[in-house]
Simulated assay, not measured.
Amino acid sequence: MADRIKKCLGIFLCAMLFGTTACAKGEPQELYALSAVLMDADTGRILYEKNGSEQRPMASTTKIMTLLVTLENADLEGTVEVSDYAASMPDVQLNIRKGEKYRLRDLCYSLMLESHNDTAVAIAEHVGGSVEGFASMMNQKARDLGCTHTYFITPNGLDASDDKGIHSTTAEDLARIMRCCMKNEDFLTITREPSWTFSDLDETRSFTVNNKNAFLNMMEGALTGKTGFTNGAGYCYVGALERGEKRLIAVVLACGWPNHKTWKWADTMKLMNYGLDDFHMQTIGEDAIDLGTIQVSDGQTASVEAAADVKSRRMLLQDGDTFRMDIKKPETLTAPVEAGEIVGTVLYYMNDEIIDLFPVYAQNSSPSINFAWCFEQVVKRWITVL
């Protein structure tokens, strides 16, 4: 029972936290992107959003999920055999050929450094058995991350639709996916590599792929990222930056169409600079708290000790952000009460929105009064009188 309640509280917290947005102050003005988000990568708190929950095609930014699912489910030393379907993908291509065999690790560099569409399909077929099977894995991972407005059809991000919808995400969901990617060291290693040289396993053809993510050289602390473009999506970008204690994720979707290829960089830098200039790190909350006791009605003990495993946290705040803590626990419980039973909640609020919660639980038990207990108490008093 207690475990189920804890799980429900955790799900509730995720929903509240992912929806929490910082107060407006000096926000980026006149962004080109139709949808944009700036997220604190450490907490998942959204610091800025422009149509952040609007679902849109996301082009090759899709490939961050393609790589993440691959890293979590496959051996990078595995052998990938190219199918006719993979070889038929449109530009951008590595131009792999049907029947050729490659090391999966090498294809991951092709996927992320130069965004090859044929490579994406070859990887998907190898890891998921088929493009459809791999898309199912991508969608499950998205659900696991709390991405409720994301739908993957292709592993390369080409515009696509089926009877369930269009290949799409939101700026908020894409930031959540990148937040997970940042925790994977292999993901960071691959996406930060300047160039990679490899050959097919028969060593009949060799390739060198170069990193096309120009943002890595635009701002100090640029950590990782992925570009994208299709006719349906426009120019897109998702990227991460780490500077000092600050770890930021910026997303821009539908950020212009030709001839406006550089707009995504202008918007991304505006978002990142907003996070760097307008927010500071601050410790909030407590590492310990005295919750006292709770009276118990009809229990073998008059009260139980209440406790919560609270902790302080560091987070990005603006001047004017207000924090408060709220303790919700009853004055009286009705027996039986079990040790560990959830009896209340400690809530952390930022600007009156929940950012964290901790279950309040009973530290000791108080069984219900019954005949055996009553008889035992009578005997004890009788012995005391004698």
Rank of each mutant, 00 (worst) to 15 (best):
K50T: 01
G157W: 04
T150G: 01
A124C: 13
I177D: 01
L113W: 08
L316E: 08
T66H: 01
I355L: 11
I289R: 05
L317T: 10
D309K: 04
L253C: 11
W263Y: 09
T384N: 12
A288Y: 14
G52Y: 08
I96T: 10
Q55F: 01
D118W: 12
D277N: 11
L111A: 05
K328I: 15
A74Y: 06
Q318V: 07
E185W: 02
K50Y: 08
K164P: 01
W373S: 02
V69S: 02
L111V: 15
T197L: 14
T384E: 12
C8G: 12
F358Y: 15
A222Y: 10
S366V: 04
R45T: 09
R4G: 13
M281I: 15
I153F: 03
K311V: 08
G19F: 11
W265F: 14
V209N: 03
E376L: 03
E305Y: 04
E338C: 01
L107A: 11
T384M: 08
T293E: 14
M89H: 00
M58F: 09
G232A: 10
A124G: 05
I123M: 12
A302K: 11
V296I: 12
A24G: 05
A59E: 03
G239Q: 06
I354T: 06
V337R: 00
Q55I: 09
V92H: 05
N231I: 06
L317G: 00
E331V: 09
T204C: 09
V310Y: 00
E54K: 08
E185L: 03
N273I: 07
T66A: 12
V304Q: 08
W265Q: 03
I5A: 14
Y237M: 15
T21D: 06
G78P: 00
N211G: 04
I123K: 07
W263K: 10
P28T: 15
A15Y: 12
L248Y: 05
A266V: 04
E132Q: 13
Y151I: 08
T66R: 05
N139I: 01
Y48R: 00
A288H: 09
V310M: 01
A2Q: 13
F187R: 06
E376A: 12
C23F: 09
L47H: 14
T43E: 01
E331N: 14
T384W: 04
A87L: 02
T227A: 09
W265R: 10
P28L: 11
F187K: 07
M16Q: 07
I166M: 07
D106R: 04
I11Y: 04
D3E: 15
E72S: 08
A135I: 12
T227S: 15
L17F: 03
L113P: 06
R4L: 08
S366T: 02
N231G: 14
A135F: 05
A160F: 03
S35R: 05
E54A: 07
G157M: 11
S88N: 12
A22C: 14
E376Q: 15
A233W: 06
R243C: 04
Y151V: 02
K164I: 01
G320I: 08
Y349H: 06
D106P: 02
H280R: 15
M65Q: 05
L317I: 14
A87Q: 03
V92T: 11
P90Y: 07
F375C: 09
G19C: 09
N213R: 02
K98S: 04
V378N: 06
I166D: 05
D163V: 11
I383Y: 09
I383V: 13
Y102F: 10
V385H: 12
D162P: 02
